[in-house]
Computed example of a mutant assay.
Amino acid sequence: MDLRQIKNIIKEFEDSKIDKLEISDKDFSIKLEKNKTQTIFSSSPSVSDNGVATPPVATPSEQVQPEVEENTNVLVKAPLVGTFYQAPSPDASPFVRVNQKVNKGDTLFIVEAMKVMNEIAAPVSGTVVKINVSDATMVEFGQVVMEIQE
Rank of each mutant, 00 (worst) to 15 (best):
Q86V: 03
T107W: 06
V129I: 14
K104H: 05
M114A: 11
S89E: 13
I110A: 07
P123W: 00
S89P: 10
N103V: 09
V98P: 10
N103R: 13
I110V: 14
I131A: 01
V102N: 05
V98Q: 14
A113W: 09
K130D: 13
E112N: 12
G105Y: 00
R97Y: 12
K130C: 09
A87D: 09
D106M: 04
S89M: 12
P88M: 03
V124I: 15
V111I: 15
Q100D: 14
S89A: 15
V129C: 10
F109E: 05
N118C: 08
Y85D: 08
P88V: 01
F95A: 03
F109G: 05
Q100H: 09
K101Q: 13
E112I: 11
G105P: 04
P94W: 05
V111W: 06
F109C: 15
T127D: 04
M114C: 13
P88A: 08
V116Y: 04
M117I: 07
D91R: 12
V128H: 02
K101F: 11
V98H: 09
T127N: 12
S93H: 09
Q86I: 13
Q86K: 14
V98A: 09
I120D: 00
N103C: 08
G105C: 02
L108E: 00
P88E: 08
P123V: 02
G105Q: 04
P94E: 11
V128T: 03
V96R: 02
